[in-house]
Computed example of a mutant assay.
Amino acid sequence: MTTTTLSPSIPADWRDFLALTKPRVMRSVVFTGLCGMLVAPVALPPAIAFTAILAIALAAGAAGTLNQWYESDIDALMKRTAKRPLAAGRMDRDSALHFGVGVGVFSVLLMGLVVNLIAAAFLAVSILFYVVIYTIGLKRYTPQNIVIGGAAGAFPPMIGWVAATGSLSLLPILMFSLIFLWTPPHSWALALLIRDDYAKGGVPMMPVVAGARTTRWQMLGYAVAMAVVAIAPWPLGLAGGFYGVVASIASAVFVGLTVWVVAVAAPTPATMKPERVLFVYSIGYILAMFAALVVDRWMV
């Protein structure tokens, strides 16, 4: 990683600090964390529940900030990320580092002081996992970066559950596993579309290192395993029929789209590339799974 600090040509403003937090990722983290809290058997007082979700959001923002701080050299090389505040030279690295560390520490303290210490511990681990294990330890060195690193994005529903109950059980572990197994086909679908961009940035994503064919087959393996985990709460008695039907249909479509990705290797129009269709569907899929779990719990 380069340690050169660029002098910002344009002063950073609040929008740049917001961009550092990766708002789109933060929304997904908050949503899955909230769902983990809502399906828990214990209902938190509104003020404490709000504080827990705020802490999760701040932690996600801190992790995103520190990720961009460390990867500013890579971001500057890739078209998809070149306009980020650090990559574009609108902010100095020290400001981003201080902001990320400060927000991260505050989020953990807030969770520990207002909610409970176990949830705070899980929150701290999730930040450290994303920054140290994924960003620093894996991203630049192995095509398995997104597989192992996917655990970082899978923590929120467990944190939401632990915030409400103070302990773990099988359902939040399955929620964690669902996101963990969903991440490779979701991320590699995008990587197949922008493989050249990753290659330019020197990021050893699976399509860059192993090729498209191997990546597609591995996506299918993860999609099948994900579908099994997604449906599992129903036969295990952890969710009812509504969730079971939604999970079964949505997961079958996901696997079907992944089979399409494997089968169609020939060039296709950009708007109809199976990888693009799968990537877009995968975003709605994971949100639908967690929303269905909450609705199913409320129907009991």
Rank of each mutant, 00 (worst) to 15 (best):
M1I: 11
T3Y: 12
P8R: 01
I10K: 15
A12Y: 13
A19G: 11
A19I: 09
M26S: 08
V29T: 13
V30W: 00
T32E: 08
L34V: 15
L34R: 12
V39Q: 10
A47F: 14
A52N: 04
A57Y: 11
G61E: 02
G64E: 06
T65V: 14
L66T: 12
M78S: 01
R80W: 02
T81F: 01
A82L: 09
A87G: 09
A88L: 03
A88W: 05
A88M: 04
G89P: 02
D92K: 06
G102F: 09
V103Q: 04
I118D: 07
A120D: 03
F129V: 09
V131I: 05
K139V: 00
N145Y: 08
G149K: 03
G149M: 05
A154D: 03
M158I: 05
M158S: 05
S167K: 13
L174R: 00
S177P: 04
T183S: 12
T183P: 10
H186I: 05
A189S: 14
L190K: 02
L192W: 10
L193T: 10
I194K: 08
K200A: 15
G201C: 10
G201Q: 06
V203Y: 00
P204C: 03
V208L: 09
V209F: 07
W217V: 04
L220F: 12
Y222S: 14
V224H: 01
A227R: 00
V229S: 04
A232R: 05
P233D: 03
G240Y: 07
G241N: 12
Y243V: 06
V245S: 07
A250M: 11
F254K: 01
V259T: 11
V264Y: 06
V264T: 09
P269G: 00
T271R: 15
M272S: 15
K273Q: 14
V277P: 02
L278T: 07
V280M: 02
I286M: 12
I286D: 03
A288I: 14
M289Y: 12
M289R: 07
A291M: 13
A292H: 01
D296H: 07
W298S: 15
M299R: 14
